[in-house]
């Protein structure tokens, strides 16, 4: 069994700041991490390695420094790592990203056929949840999104049963491999890697592919040129024209009194509403 996990290196969002004057994102010095949602995908893949001896290949598209994310994935126990990097990919939206990644997945599959492609639910920077389904659609893989559990895999029949989160419940889906799974968050916990994996990761020579090496059929479908969406404007949200009414008071108690007086005189409907709720609640109790 061979599984590919698509991971993305993202800046640690907790440490991002926006320049107060220019409204641009200040990236300098912001540490990067593996997209947290992708760790659920990676762990699920590693469990298939434990269970079936599956080979786990991690794939990322990004700048050269994204090799750090791949190396980190190797320390958890991934077997192979491929970095897809080319200036032609710069400025890709989700359509162009899934185009490049699907070309690389197809290429990986040529030498070692793939059973499952794993993605995270979404990234914390792009935050679209579109790239996984994009890859599935392009490669004609059965698409299983928001998977909360792999119920069973029949290796010989090449069939898989999963739980998929839907709006009001859980779908139990059965499909054929190859398929693409996007893992829901909090479905598992990434393991601590072993010392052996850490050593191997340090010595491992990553495979680096350009667009041509990845077998991308048409580079005009990559990067900015291949992206139908155009960002026209980035801006800070405007403050409300009417500023928040400041509530004054010397003590928390007087502050609270003033707030309630102000609130209820401005919104008598709220007062009625709350009173009837409290009344019906205490009747019920």
């Amino acid at each position: 069994m061979h599984v590919v996990v698509c991971i993305k290196q993202v800046p640690d969002s907790a440490q991002i700041r926006v320049h107060p004057v220019t409204n641009t994102i200040m990236r300098q010095g912001v540490p990067t991490i593996i997209n947290p949602y992708d760790l659920f995908a990676l762990e699920e893949a590693l469990r298939l390695k434990d269970q079936f001896g599956a080979k786990v290949t991690v794939l990322t598209m990004g700048p050269k420094m994204a090799d750090q994310a791949l190396r980190k994935a190797l320390t958890f126990g991934a077997d192979e790592a491929i970095l897809l990097t080319d200036r032609a990919f710069a400025g890709s939206d989700t359509l162009a990203t899934s185009y490049a990644l699907s070309s690389a997945v197809a290429k990986i599959g040529q030498t070692d056929p793939i059973d499952i492609v794993f993605c995270g639910k979404q990234t914390i920077d792009g935050d679209t949840a579109q790239v996984g389904p994009g890859i599935a659609t392009r490669l004609n893989l059965q698409q299983l999104t928001y998977v909360s559990k792999i119920v069973s895999i029949d290796k010989d029949a090449r069939q898989i049963v999963v739980h998929r989160r839907a709006e009001g419940g859980v779908q139990v889906l059965k499909t054929a491999m190859p398929c693409l799974i996007t893992m829901l968050e909090d479905t598992n916990h990434i393991r601590f890697g072993t010392m052996a994996d850490a050593f191997r990761a340090a010595r491992y020579t990553l495979t680096e592919w350009s667009a041509t090496e990845a077998g991308v059929p048409d580079v005009t479908h990559c990067g900015l040129r291949g992206s139908p969406t155009v960002v026209k404007k980035v801006f800070a949200p405007t403050a409300k024209t009417v500023k928040a009414t400041p509530i004054a008071g010397d003590t928390p108690e007087s502050l609270s009194q003033t707030l309630i007086d102000t609130l209820f005189s401005a919104h008598p409907g709220l007062q009625e509403d709350l009173e009837s709720r409290v009344a019906s609640n205490s009747q019920g109790a």
Binding site: L95, S98, P133, T229
Partner: peptide
Amino acid sequence: ATTLGRDLASAVATTLATGLTAD
């Protein structure tokens, strides 16, 4: 942008090679 809507929108946008803006 429900689980169904996102799943379907991504597949449709990819099939039609058009732009999709999420959320």
